[in-house]
């Protein structure tokens, strides 16, 4: 009987998206957040969660790349810095990203986050290429504030990325996003599909596969032109991008090398896949990671899912969240796949 703790994973990255706060100052139309009003932040809970995570990374000999987000992380900077301090001093954590709506950032905060050596990037959400389209999703006045924050971040030398969450309401903006990204001289632009979690959301936001195909091709072509001789990159490591470029795309990491933690310690396979797995504080991470039937389902790759036989399967496999909410089956074919 060998004790081996997955030797093949040594020093590999484990990705955690940690929603350490559930409050937010905005009310975006597509948001996954249900409750915006939990205003208190218990630092002891954050510490306990951190310790469990740290222990697991040490045991697995993996390095954690953690994205700290909310809600809106800059709504409680004291919580953000408390976590960043702990992460910065642990050898089991490699990098930190902050995911924000960019409306609360100022130069004092920027000065402070710049001190963290492990800060890899700040990712700001922009859901339209102009005031009308972005504010239509995120609320009046938010576009200008967010653009201003992106400029401040860039000027400070912090690696800055933009996340555009694509759905039916902002589909017209998608192919204009590379131009805006180039103008802002940001480091990376991600165009990622929204997960419609209910029938109502499906009617309002879902983009049919044939339309998605056109959008992806347009965004890719526009990025090629706009990012020429620039340092801006289009992030294409997610499912379906392999259909556009054979070198792009990536298999869904949920259940394999990533996890989502909510402010109270609840664990999800991914923020877009609201299937509670347990709680890191009461169950511990090992018990959940080793025993969850949902996670074992997500790990089924060979011939047991809707993508069996597809030549793109290794670098695609579809988005499990979108497949689940559309077909009620994690391993069904991605409903937005156009082949």
């Amino acid at each position: 009987m060998d004790g081996y703790n997955d030797k093949k994973n040594i020093n590999k990255d484990f990705y955690v998206q940690w929603h350490f706060i559930d409050s937010c100052n905005l009310r975006c139309v597509h948001c996954y957040q249900n409750d915006y009003n939990h205003k208190t932040l218990d630092l002891n809970i954050l510490k306990d969660i951190f310790l469990k995570l740290d222990e697991a990374m040490a045991k697995w000999k993996m390095k954690c790349f953690v994205s700290l987000t909310g809600g809106e992380p800059f709504l409680k900077p004291e919580g953000l810095f408390y976590l960043m301090d702990m992460i910065e001093s642990s050898d089991n954590f490699k990098n930190i990203a902050i995911l924000t709506n960019g409306t609360l950032i100022d130069n004092t905060l920027i000065k402070k986050i710049k001190n963290y050596k492990k800060l890899a990037e700040v990712q700001v959400s922009l859901d339209g290429h102009d005031e009308e389209s972005h504010d239509g999703v995120r609320g009046e006045g938010t576009f200008l504030k967010t653009i201003n924050s992106i400029k401040m971040l860039k000027n400070s030398g912090i690696k800055t990325a933009v996340m555009f969450t694509l759905h039916k309401k902002n589909i017209g903006s998608a192919s204009n996003m590379p131009r805006l990204a180039a103008l802002l001289n940001i480091d990376a632009l991600t165009v990622e599909r929204m997960t419609a979690m209910s029938d109502i959301e499906r009617d309002e936001f879902f983009i049919e596969a044939s339309d998605l195909k056109n959008v992806y091709f347009d965004v890719y072509a526009s990025a090629k032109t706009e990012f020429k001789n620039k340092n801006t990159k289009l992030s294409v490591s997610r499912p379906l991008w392999n259909l556009i470029d054979e070198n792009a795309g990536g298999y869904c990491p949920a259940g394999l090398s990533s996890l989502c933690i909510l402010h109270d310690g609840a664990l999800l396979p991914c923020r877009r896949l609201y299937l509670p797995l347990g709680n890191i504080l009461t169950d511990g991470l090992f018990k959940v990671w080793y025993n969850s039937d949902i996670l074992w389902k997500l790990r089924k790759r060979n011939g047991e899912n809707g993508c069996a036989g597809c030549s793109h399967a290794d670098k695609c496999g579809g988005c499990k969240a979108i497949s689940y909410y559309y077909n009620r089956d994690l391993n069904s074919k991605d409903p937005q796949c156009w082949i």
């Binding site: 004790g3 081996y4 703790n5 697991a56 045991k59 511990g284 991470l285 090992f286 080793y290 025993n291």
Partner: peptide, 9 residues
């Protein structure tokens, strides 16, 4: 799986 120590055999 040892669900307490995290060891995997």
């Amino acid at each position: 799986f040892d669900n307490i120590s995290g060891n995997i055999y």
